[in-house]
């Protein structure tokens, strides 16, 4: 068993949190509140380092314009004042406006053009044919207008609408395959969180498992 106080501290925190799996208890609540306090303080500290380096230090160099984002940043906290909470809308509007523009500049190429280009491949193998069918049918699942008209409106494009409806049924099958693939990888993610804890408790702390660096 380890004699390092650091390891003991970490082990006691881990066990304190795991004790919740048996039932909720005061030790868990102490650890939980400690964790919550530290995590929010860590966020605030990291925020402070950014404000200090990009705000105050720039201000110290005579860059007065940096006051604009700093004022907007302070206005965010007006949310806590019922009377002046509308002032925080300016900061949110700025955050949303810039984020929206950055998103547009990014996804047009990477999320639309590149994806369409990637989907258009020479049909030289069975895989590429399967991929094309899956792609087209999966896209038709999201055709909410075509193929959803009521029977009374049917007539002119009856065959086309039927084709889309048939295609979206196949597309749903393709989407289920994809969701299955996502599900298949979920377990690895969850085990990936638990195994290191187990390795720490039974390895670094109790020395039952060989330690790896």
């Amino acid at each position: 068993m380890s004699t390092d106080p650091k390891v003991w501290l970490a082990a006691l925190m881990s066990i304190g949190i795991y004790s919740y799996l048996y039932k909720e208890n005061p030790i868990f609540r102490v650890c939980e509140h400690l964790y919550l306090g530290l995590s929010l303080a860590h966020l605030a500290v990291m925020g402070w380092t950014n404000v200090r380096d990009l705000g105050f230090k720039e201000l110290g160099k005579g860059n007065v314009l940096v006051l604009i984002p700093m004022v907007l940043g302070v206005l965010l906290f007006m949310r806590f004042s019922p009377k002046n909470s509308w002032l925080s809308r300016y900061s949110l509007a700025y955050l949303m406006g810039v984020a929206g523009a950055v998103t547009i500049t990014g996804v047009i190429d990477a999320g639309i053009i590149s994806q369409i280009r990637g989907a258009i491949t020479p049909l030289t193998s069975l895989d590429s044919v399967v991929a094309l069918i899956c792609n087209v049918t999966a896209i038709t699942v999201f055709f909410f207008i075509i193929g959803s008209t009521s029977k009374t409106q049917q007539g002119k494009n009856w065959w086309f609408e039927r084709l889309i409806r048939w295609s979206s049924t196949v597309g749903r099958f393709v989407l289920m395959i994809s969701f299955g693939a996502v599900f298949g990888t979920t377990i690895m993610a969850r085990l990936g969180l638990f195994i290191p804890r187990l390795r720490f408790l039974l390895g670094d702390w109790i020395h039952l498992i060989p330690s790896v660096k």
Binding site: G118, S178, A181, V182, T185, T186, A189, G192
Partner: peptide
């Protein structure tokens, strides 16, 4: 993370 792999594979 493994969970993102089915999405990231297209990139």
């Amino acid at each position: 993370i493994a969970l993102s792999a089915p999405e990231a594979i297209v990139y």
